[in-house]
Simulated assay, not measured.
Amino acid sequence: MNKRTTTALLAVLATGALALTACSGGGGSSSGSQGDELKGLSGEIGAKDFSEQYILAHITSQLLNAHGADTTANTSVVGSANVRAALEGDDFLGYWEYTGTSWITYNGNTAPVQGEEAQFAATKEADAKNGIAWLDPAPLNNTYAFAILSDKAKKLGVKTLSDIAELPVSEQTFCIESEFSTRDDGWPGLKAAYGLDVPDANVSLLDTGVIYTETAKGDTCNFGEVFQTDGRITSLDLTVMEDDKAFFPVYQGAFTLKQTTLDKYPEIADVLDEVSPLLTTEEMQKLNAQADVDGDDPEDIATDWLTEQGLI
């Protein structure tokens, strides 16, 4: 084989390799094309400021883009109320919300609706009056809970939230988020429901991630506010206290967006129906653990998961 033939062959091989690379979508935000039914749809997919929301925002953005949309995930907004306001103000195309949060925080109800399906139906109906549509929900329930180090739970003999109220006040120590401290479905309501009467000195306000590590240490607090779908519960050997009085509402996750947007692009519902049924509480725990335990990037987690599911 002469030099000219060899050079030509190498050029062909190089071109083929580049083509394969382009088809594989090497970047974290790349999405393999699945159709163009959402062509013309653009905007930002919002997220609250914790890993589950980051992952869901990237999953949603990448999947919509695979069907012709041009969206990006915005994970820079802090606080549930601010994310909701961004949707209402058309700064966000949509974001994943939880039924309990909307029902109580945004729609002004003080008590949850018993039953997952009933809570979703009531929330969807209430938000329809606000011009906000709820797509079919995922099975995941990211409800609030309180957890304690498993060895400490055995030592204190506690299994339920009612058991905590029977402990000496010195053992009733809590780590909670600042937002949880003022919500009707948070600390004020929980204290009333379970008859918890503890001094302010027994309650530490911490960032979400710090709550898990401090609860695992057992020094700052015995009981930490956690989310049911968080992967750190298992990795840190925490035991979740049973909500035996069913105080916490169901926090079933679903994608929310303006009704006007859904009317213009009804295919959004069909596309996201490919994802929602797969997002169980257990599956979300695994995805969250990749971010909060393994330290993986939420965008990469979303890309890998969608690829594994054959959705991009």
Rank of each mutant, 00 (worst) to 15 (best):
Y144T: 07
L167I: 00
G157I: 08
L161G: 05
F146N: 02
L167K: 02
A165D: 05
S150R: 15
C175W: 12
F180T: 13
A147Y: 04
F146R: 03
V169M: 01
Y144W: 11
D197H: 09
E177W: 09
R183W: 14
T173G: 05
D151G: 06
A201Q: 15
A145Q: 14
F180I: 13
L135P: 02
D163H: 11
D151N: 09
E171P: 11
L135D: 01
T160M: 03
N202L: 12
I176E: 04
G186K: 00
L149F: 06
S150C: 10
N202H: 05
D136Q: 07
S150Q: 14
K155S: 13
G186I: 06
N141V: 09
D136F: 12
P188R: 07
D151H: 06
F174M: 12
A165K: 07
W187T: 00
P139A: 12
S181K: 01
S150F: 05
A147W: 07
L156V: 05
P139E: 15
D197V: 00
S162F: 04
E166M: 10
E166I: 03
S181H: 08
T173D: 11
E179P: 05
I132S: 06
N142H: 08
S181E: 10
G195E: 02
A201N: 13
R183L: 12
I176M: 10
L140R: 10
P168E: 03
S170Q: 13
K191D: 03
S150H: 10
I148W: 11
S181Q: 06
L161C: 01
W134R: 11
T173Q: 04
L161M: 15
K159H: 15
S162H: 11
D184A: 15
I132D: 03
F174W: 15
L135M: 08
T143V: 10
F180V: 15
F146D: 04
D197G: 01
L190D: 09
K154F: 08
Y194E: 03
E171Y: 01
A192G: 05
A145F: 08
K155L: 11
G186W: 02
S178W: 11
V158F: 06
A147G: 05
P137I: 03
N142G: 15
L196T: 02
A147V: 07
P139T: 12
S181F: 01
D151A: 14
L140Q: 12
L190E: 02
L196W: 09
G195A: 06
V198Y: 03
T143S: 13
S150K: 14
L149V: 11
P139W: 12
D197P: 00
Y144E: 12
I132P: 13
E171R: 00
P199W: 02
S162W: 00
N202V: 00
E171S: 08
D200N: 11
K191A: 03
P199A: 10
V158P: 09
A145N: 14
E166L: 11
I176H: 04
A201G: 14
A192W: 09
P139V: 13
E166A: 14
P137K: 13
G157K: 09
K191G: 02
A147H: 12
L135I: 05
F180M: 12
T160F: 04
D184G: 09
D200S: 13
E171H: 00
E171K: 06
G157R: 00
L156T: 05
P188C: 06
K159G: 15
P199L: 01
C175T: 06
N142W: 12
D200W: 02
I148S: 09
P188D: 01
D163Q: 07
T143R: 15
I164P: 01
A165S: 14
D184Y: 00
S150M: 03
